[in-house]
Design a protein around this nucleic acid. Structure first.
Ligand SMILES: [Mn+2]
Ligand SMILES: [Mn+2]
Ligand SMILES: [Zn+2]
Ligand SMILES: [Zn+2]
Lengths: 145, 145
DNA sequence: TGCTAATTGCAACAATATTACAATTAACCT
DNA sequence: AGGTTAATTGTAATATTGTTGCAATTAGCA
């Protein structure tokens, strides 16, 4: 019995003309079983414990592909540093990041925050910290085009 | 003339009993001027171009402190990999991540998404991709306590 | 069952991040 | 203002994370 998420992902690979390889199925399997987010090396470790070996380069390439096809997401929490900005709003932290010029503005909206918290609360989750990122085109860049 | 964000940040450092050192002021300054998010090594490079040298270890320590005090945020975009999860919802991607057991659930809400997009649009920003992370305690973990 | 483009492995390297300990300095006290 | 000291920074060594070019392998197709 194969999980539906995996079925769907395999179908996406096929329809987009990508091969359904053993490594890709293995990474899908590990990600599906985990209830937490995994790093490339986490995935390698888990597979090795089962006697399967995948080169880390392969895992990186697979994860890049999955993210490109929206089969997976990168998440920030509990991870590395990479990028940092000064905080400008209190409480809720929403960023608008232009994929064209790279500028970043922060905005806050109490109503939005309350609503989002409430929706989480509906599934029993108590929110302590929230972060939101929107990627797109800023007003300056859209004018220039 | 010192920017108000920096003034505020310095005040936070002081009231929390942290020293206001030259490296900390320099990092604050660079972050404030930049309109984009910067990596620790970006910051080092910018300062070096001005003839100032800061060890990367120092910059990491300062950024860790700033994030702990909510003077700065880590952001995900355009950065490294670190962690990855399978996608379960289309369009909008909101994660509830338990800081206790590490489990992660995804939820989507169209109304919320539309509202957030509209608010961004009000400042001329066109959203193409959105990601949201809420850290807190899941229902299982809060029951156990 | 063979052919071939796509995918993976390997090796080398680059970038990012942490640790332990010695040197320095900001804040506090005369 | 100068001395004291705990907090902070620099240094060196190391660990972790991520990329690139090229040779070996394999999934999908005829
Ligand atoms: Mn913020
Ligand atoms: Mn999603
Ligand atoms: Zn722009
Ligand atoms: Zn939990």
């Amino acid at each position: 019995m194969i999980a539906p998420v995996i079925q769907d992902s395999i179908r996406v690979l096929q329809t987009q003309g990508y091969k359904v390889t053993k490594p890709r199925r293995q990474v899908l399997g590990v990600l599906e079983e985990a209830q937490k987010s995994l790093s490339p090396y986490d995935i390698q470790r888990i597979l090795r414990q089962r006697g399967k070996y995948l080169n880390h380069v392969t895992i990186y390439r697979i994860l890049h592909l999955f993210c490109r096809l929206n089969l997976a997401h990168k998440v920030l929490s509990a991870g590395g540093f990479v990028k940092c900005v000064l905080d400008k709003k209190e409480g809720c932290h929403r960023f608008l990041i232009c994929r064209c010029c790279g500028t970043l503005q922060e905005f806050a909206d109490d109503e939005l925050c309350q609503h989002e918290k409430k929706l989480a609360q509906n599934s029993g989750f108590h929110t302590e910290y929230h972060l939101s990122e929107s990627l797109g085109i800023c007003s300056d860049c859209s004018k220039k085009q």
